[in-house]
Amino acid sequence: MSLGDSSTPLGKARGLGSAKQGGEHWITERVTSIALLLLGIWLIASLLLLPKLDQRTLVEWLHNPSAFIPMALLVVVGFRHALDGVKVAVDDYVHEPGTNFVVNTLLLFLAVTGAAIALFGLARIAFGVVG
């Protein structure tokens, strides 16, 4: 630590692993994991508590903001967490920078497209387009 540098050892190290970046990524992965812990338990509990799982019952359930909002959050946070997590595996095994960039970019497109399709379906239900 040089003279006049007021940052703590943790502050200096944060984000400076072998990749020289990724501190934010690491934190985001953990914050989204806590959100998904709650949202995942909510989804499973909700499905178990519904009287039936046919289309009509499910649409009525998701039409209600108390189900639509957590489900929309689950989709957005879920795809974000999946993207962050799969990236860790990709970065571990795909070392060539060009290939790494291509694989991570394709996964980004896949995640954003998947989230868009899920949110589109959810929006149609929430705004009453389907009965």
Partner: peptide
């Protein structure tokens, strides 16, 4: 790691298909 990848692809895939198809009618 393995289950994370499984949930990311199969889990979110099914979730997306489920929500989209729910909105397409009975």
């Amino acid at each position: 790691r393995a289950t994370g990848i499984a949930v990311s692809f199969a889990g979110l895939g099914i979730l997306t298909w489920w929500l989209f198809t729910l909105s397409n009618g009975a």
